[in-house]
């Protein structure tokens, strides 16, 4: 029977290595989140971060008056958010390289203060790298008090390097309720304390 016991001792090394591999694989699943960002932004050139483009990039762009691009605007709210939200103009024609400002209107129709975040999306997705926002309400949280309405600006420049076959872009926003921030606001800005 000693032949049965002996291999089990050897197995310990294999078990240790395989467990380490499994643990590394588990961590790798989480590491894919930053790796994906790095791959998209550094290697593949996909824009994930939605911050404003730098002043230098804007200044470097020269207006290409030889063509114009039609930009369409869409605005929607997530079904859980009791707001209204719409663009003031639904389409506009711009020259690439031209700084343009458009306005969106949002209103809180509920009787409580709510914080919302707008998530932008540009279609076609291959053109999104050429659509640069210098200012946008989507960069920050938006707090609307009960019944409050607000005009919000977006300033953008279409990169003159935009491929010539793209003649139409769609910029769409979806507003979501930021539940954590809303709760924070309700706690600090003097929501009525609990009975007592």
């Amino acid at each position: 029977m000693n032949t049965v016991a002996a291999p089990t001792r050897n197995a310990r090394g294999v078990v240790r290595i395989t467990l380490i591999v499994s643990a590394c694989a588990f961590l790798f699943g989480f590491a894919m989140i930053p790796l994906y960002r790095i791959a998209c932004e550094q290697v593949l050139g996909i824009k994930l971060e939605d911050g404003p483009v730098t002043g230098r990039a804007v200044a470097a762009a020269s207006v290409d008056t030889s063509r114009s691009v039609r930009i369409q605007f869409l605005a929607s709210v997530n079904s859980k958010l009791p707001w209204t939200f719409a663009p003031e103009v639904t389409r506009i024609d711009v020259h690439p390289g031209e700084l343009t400002e458009v306005w969106f209107d949002a209103a809180n129709t509920s009787d409580a203060a709510i914080v919302g975040n707008a998530v932008p999306s540009v279609a076609p997705n291959t053109a999104s790298a050429f659509f640069n926002k210098t200012e946008c309400f989507c960069f920050t949280e938006q707090l609307l008090a009960a019944g409050e309405a607000r005009r919000m600006p977006v300033r953008f420049i279409v990169d003159p390097a935009l491929p010539r076959d793209v003649t139409e872009l769609t910029l769409s926003y979806t507003f979501y309720e930021n539940t954590d921030a809303t709760r924070r606001v309700a706690e600090t800005v003097g929501a009525p304390p609990h009975a007592g």
């Binding site: 591999v21 499994s22 643990a23 694989a25 588990f26 790798f28 699943g29 894919m32």
Partner: peptide
């Protein structure tokens, strides 16, 4: 190598 990734 991959079951732990699913777990993650």
């Amino acid at each position: 190598a991959v079951m732990p990734v699913l777990a993650g």
